[in-house]
Design a protein around this nucleic acid. Structure first.
Lengths: 141, 141
DNA sequence: TTCAAAATGTAGCCTGAGCTACAATTAGGG
DNA sequence: CCCTAATTGTAGCTCAGGCTACATTTTGAA
């Protein structure tokens, strides 16, 4: 702590950073899923998934292309980069972990899924580890 | 599920709505704390707490005044409205609940606090109830 | 093969939430 | 009482992420 002058601010700044990267994560996660199923990625798919206009999808794709997470937005052969794939997998893993966790606490599947979506971007490695450990101990009961 | 055509979109729309109201909640929470301590609410306090410029604080205060959560931003006698007070209390309660929960899982206090800040805005009543129940059962061990 | 519907792209708008630079006000110590 | 420092306010900028309206391009069925 030493300084201590501003733990509070640091926490809020972290949350703001998390928000800034959420959409990108959600997009690569969705794209990854679609590619896994063998289909090409269509703007209209993403439009459906996120419940936004196709225009918003196009602009978001361009942004995440700039961040080197996907390629081919121009040529309509949208693919994840290695970086994108890594991010997608880690996001999906967090999502699954959280969802199982909530379900283990007795939450319904649909609600667990919805809450996981919101919360997955805000948990530290430490907390995720604690959750993993909890699920593991539960399994051995 | 019946329809099913668009659960995905609904989930994302919910997250967007949550984001839109997060800042307001954080502000009333902070203001409530300051008022509880008996002090007047100063722009500079909020600036410190959130780690943003005083300009951002002023603009945000005006916005939440429009939402009838606070009064007196003009006259510098900032107070929560009844609505604001209710929101502040419920936000604080969620925060505390989540923080204790993470700590019960073995997470350090500082990390539990930080993660609770991010996650508190994304959990449904159902999940919060499940967490409450879990903590209660833990307590009786 | 044609032609209507679906998909994609462009232009331009809005709001929220951040910023700096500068101006005005308020408060406290000398 | 005055003058400096702290606080608050204004103007005007940026970017992200929504939107509608209006092309254009692609595609599939008749």
């Amino acid at each position: 702590m030493s300084d201590n002058s501003n733990d509070r601010a640091t926490i809020h700044q972290r949350v703001r950073r998390q928000h800034a990267s959420e959409l990108a994560q959600d997009y690569v996660e969705a794209i990854h899923e679609i590619r896994q199923s063998g289909n090409p990625v269509k703007i209209s798919d993403l439009q459906e998934i996120f419940g936004v206009s196709h225009v918003t999808v196009i602009r978001t794709l361009k942004r995440i292309e700039e961040q080197k997470l996907v390629t081919g937005t121009r040529s309509k052969e949208i693919e994840l980069t290695a970086k994108g794939k890594r991010l997608a997998k880690s996001a999906a893993a967090k999502h699954e972990l959280l969802k199982s966790f909530f379900m283990a606490l007795g939450v319904s599947e649909s609600q667990a899924d919805a809450d996981a979506e919101g919360a997955e971007h805000h948990l530290s490695k430490e907390t995720l580890e604690a959750i993993r450990a909890f699920l593991k101990s539960e399994a051995n009961v």
